[in-house]
Amino acid sequence: MSDAVNRANPPAFENDPRVPEELRNNVFITTLDKLYNWGRKRSMWPMLFGLACCAIEMIATAASRHDLARFGWELMRASPRQADLMIVSGTVTKKMVPQIVRLYNQMPEPRYVIAMGACATAGGPFKEGYNVVSGIDKFIPVDVYITGCPPRPEALLHSFIKLQEKIEKQSLRTVPWYRPGEDDVVPVPVLGPDLIDMRRAEEIRQKAAVAQEQA
């Protein structure tokens, strides 16, 4: 529990007569934020969910040599309901993105997303492809991006540490998932003549109408 203890400010009740003698060296005080984040960052459950080549390196990260379990993240869950973290490991295609968004929506908050590799970040070598989405951040918010094609397992481990750093800085007072009235469910994109981002539906309709007039 070491890093949850507020070492800079020693407990004020060290010599407080109200505290029984035998408890004086056994009581620690800290902020709720630190305790909460300390627990969260060491028990992330990633979702067992691979897309492409990067998934192979993700498996290698979880396997014996690199051993993700050292960070307390070993439990990969196949169900989004039990997962805290989605590792988008590979090329996001238009055919797949409705499923990814749906999985993201099904994850309980707090939830995090790592975009692993060039494809998940920005489309990568396949960006120009007609069935490829130029990065998962067009649809869902991403916390950490990793470069590489595919990133080495060490790079993935690095992104976990970066995410832990991010979690450490979060505060219960400001995190979005405890704010009233906020709902960050992402509308699931629809497969029509091409991929339709429903948030942009009105804009698409107007542009297509203008294009028809000009033609």
Partner: peptide, 8 residues
């Protein structure tokens, strides 16, 4: 998208 396409 095709010309005049209406996603709504």
């Amino acid at each position: 998208y095709p010309l005049g396409f209406d996603p709504l």
